[in-house]
């Protein structure tokens, strides 16, 4: 996984509450068996006028001019400002894959849905929860000045607004450690192999019916 330490980037404001993962990446694109290539279909239905198809070339498709990611001033954005309950609905990890593939490194919102929040950390994408009034302020500052950049510092757990105001955020120690160092958490868990084996033996004694092989 690509590490995340400190990132300075153009922020794009997506002023919509309850953005679900169907919206982030519609179902027809989930047929892929790869982890990459979803960026061109990120927010497909909000971004384009027509219905997108898998493997379709997207340059030349009619775009919705009023959608934030289609506005010239937000081209190259790498920090997404969002509203409450971002990422609700389906557990599809294709949602963070699409955000990452598009070029986003961080999403800032007043709240996230649990599964989406979890999935982001597995992909070097940092979801940040700030207080609603802090998010409001970021939206206002970003709207006020074209090219406004925000600084996300994971080590310090701060977001610096375009005007220089600093907001602190919380993140679990373990997740922070993995993200800062780009660690594969499967490898880390496997370091606990003995504990898992010990637990499994105990569980096997208590609930042996859970350990029978499945006859076809």
């Amino acid at each position: 996984m690509r590490p995340f330490t400190k990132h300075t980037g153009l922020a794009a404001p997506l002023d919509l509450a309850n953005v679900d993962t169907d919206m982030i990446i519609p179902k027809q694109f989930l047929k892929s068996i790869k982890r990459t290539g979803f960026g061109k279909n990120l927010f497909d239905e909000l971004r384009y006028e027509d219905e997108g198809q898998p493997d379709q070339e997207c340059t030349g498709r009619p775009v919705r001019e009023d959608f934030v990611l289609n506005m010239p001033r937000y081209q190259g954005a790498s920090v997404l400002l969002a509203r409450q309950n971002f990422g609700c609905g389906s557990s599809r990890e294709h949602a963070p894959w699409a955000l990452d593939d598009y070029g986003f490194r961080s999403v800032i919102a007043p709240s996230f849905a649990d599964i989406f929040y979890n999935n982001c950390f597995k992909n070097g994408l940092l979801p940040i929860v700030l207080a609603p009034e802090e998010v409001d302020q970021l939206f206002a500052e970003v709207a006020a000045k074209e090219g406004a950049e925000v600084v996300v510092d994971l080590e310090a757990q701060t977001v610096t607004s375009p005007s220089g105001e600093v907001f602190e955020f919380l993140v679990d120690t373990f997740r922070k450690h993995c993200l800062l160092n780009g660690l594969d958490d499967i490898g880390l868990t496997l370091q606990q192999e003995d504990s898992i084996h010990r637990f499994e033996e105990k569980r096997m004694a208590a609930a042996p019916w859970l350990f029978l092989s499945r006859e076809q």
């Binding site: 963070p96 999935n119 499967i186 496997l190 898992i196």
Partner: peptide, 17 residues
Amino acid sequence: GIGTSEVEHVLATQCLV
């Protein structure tokens, strides 16, 4: 429900963080 990275994590370790 879990994401795909967690599907892989459970397959490999039988555990979830």
